[in-house]
């Protein structure tokens, strides 16, 4: 369990704590959504232990909502698992990018931290280039994970009190977080804004004939690729 990147134990503690603080916006985004998930799962007839288990073992919001939706519609297990794969395979691309940051970490750390890749944990970790190290990522992921699982539990327990209709206003919160991450990067360099716009356009197009999971995967891969000459030109 030796991390060569930091020698000083005081610094280790700080990186972990920095990760926890960086996860506060993620918590603010996750709690309402996880509570909503707990409420909807309960109202679909999924036992509380199963919705909490799903949040603990899958930890991928969109696919969990989709699974509950499909279960409610009477879809088969294989269909649900396949749809989950399609939706969550985007984490593969994010994982490749994250490995750039975690290059020096020991393999068990890489595996443990990769297990906690979500759209949000990835976005926040990878945008903190100078601070991002394995301990930072660990603090951030553990905090986000705790918020997601406990939110599901709270939602399941409160399901009789919260109407599912509030979920609509809450569902803006994750988008607001993504925007709150993107805008400061664009202020720093227009290149990032251009890459994001290209990828938005591609995603809008792919969305017309692909499932939204595949559309996001392709738009991300291609948007990042089209961005390579853009970044290169600026460097020279």
């Amino acid at each position: 369990m030796e991390l060569k990147t930091h020698e000083n134990p005081q610094a280790k503690k700080t990186a972990f704590q920095q990760g926890i603080s960086a996860a506060v916006p993620i918590m603010a985004g996750y709690l309402p959504i996880a509570i909503t998930f707990g409420v909807i799962a309960q109202q679909t007839g999924i036992p509380l232990i199963h919705s909490v288990l799903m949040s603990s073992l899958v930890f991928a919001g969109a696919s969990q909502f989709m699974a509950v939706n499909m279960l409610g519609a009477g879809a088969g297990g294989l269909e649900i698992i396949l749809a989950t794969f399609v939706l969550n395979s985007r984490h593969f691309v994010m994982g490749l990018s994250l490995m750039n940051i975690l290059r020096k970490a020991p393999t068990p750390w890489k595996i443990a931290l990769s297990s906690g890749i979500t759209d949000e944990t990835f976005a926040v970790t990878s945008l903190q280039k100078e601070k991002a190290n394995p301990l930072f990522a660990a603090g951030l992921i553990l905090t986000s994970y705790a918020a997601w699982v406990s939110g599901t539990l709270i939602g399941g327990l409160l399901s009789n009190m919260i109407p599912p209709s509030i979920s609509a206003s809450m569902s803006i919160s994750l988008y607001a977080m993504f925007i709150g991450l993107l805008v400061p990067a664009v202020r720093e360099s227009w290149k990032w804004g251009l890459i994001a716009l290209i990828s938005m356009g591609l995603n809008t197009w792919f969305d017309m004939f692909l499932s939204s999971g595949w559309a996001i995967v392709l738009a991300t891969i291609m948007g990042g690729g089209i961005g390579v000459p853009i970044v290169r030109r600026k460097k020279k």
């Binding site: 994010m94 990878s126 988008y175 993504f178 890459i195 996001i216 990042g224």
Partner: peptide, 20 residues
């Protein structure tokens, strides 16, 4: 390396729109 560095911004774009 450059491509992977661009991924976060491309992902943010795709995650925001048109889902929002």
């Amino acid at each position: 390396h450059d491509w992977l560095n661009n991924i976060p911004y491309a992902a943010l774009g795709a995650l925001i729109f048109p889902g929002i």
